[in-house]
Amino acid sequence: MEIIVASTVGVLTAGGVYLLLRLRTFAVILGLALLSYAVNVFLFASGRLAIDMSPILNKYGDGVYTDPLPQALVLTAIVISFGMTAVLVMIGLGAYLEAGSDEINIDPNAEDDATEPQA
């Protein structure tokens, strides 16, 4: 099971990093989404894996529970990464609508004039 989770984290990271290095906003956003998955799973896994040990206390006896702390942290991380993705999407969209291009790299040699975007 550990190998499954570790390889998932690895593949998601690799895919995320590759997409992150692409030249268009949308690919970068996809890359960040993959990377968020990877990071969240990684953080979650730092509490070690456990099966059938949900951190819901059993009122009628002692139980063995998995580590709840990483779960709490990852829960907020998931929500925050949604917020981050949303902001990025909006910035990417704004950049595209204003500039007429969704390239992320600024050509340092290009003239710095505000050309009217071609529809």
Partner: peptide
């Protein structure tokens, strides 16, 4: 980029595995 991605992914994966064990 592929090389960077594979190295980064491999590293993170190995780290996660080492951690979980």
């Amino acid at each position: 980029d592929g090389a960077i991605a594979v190295v980064a992914g491999g590293g993170v994966g190995a780290l996660a595995y080492a951690f979980m064990m």
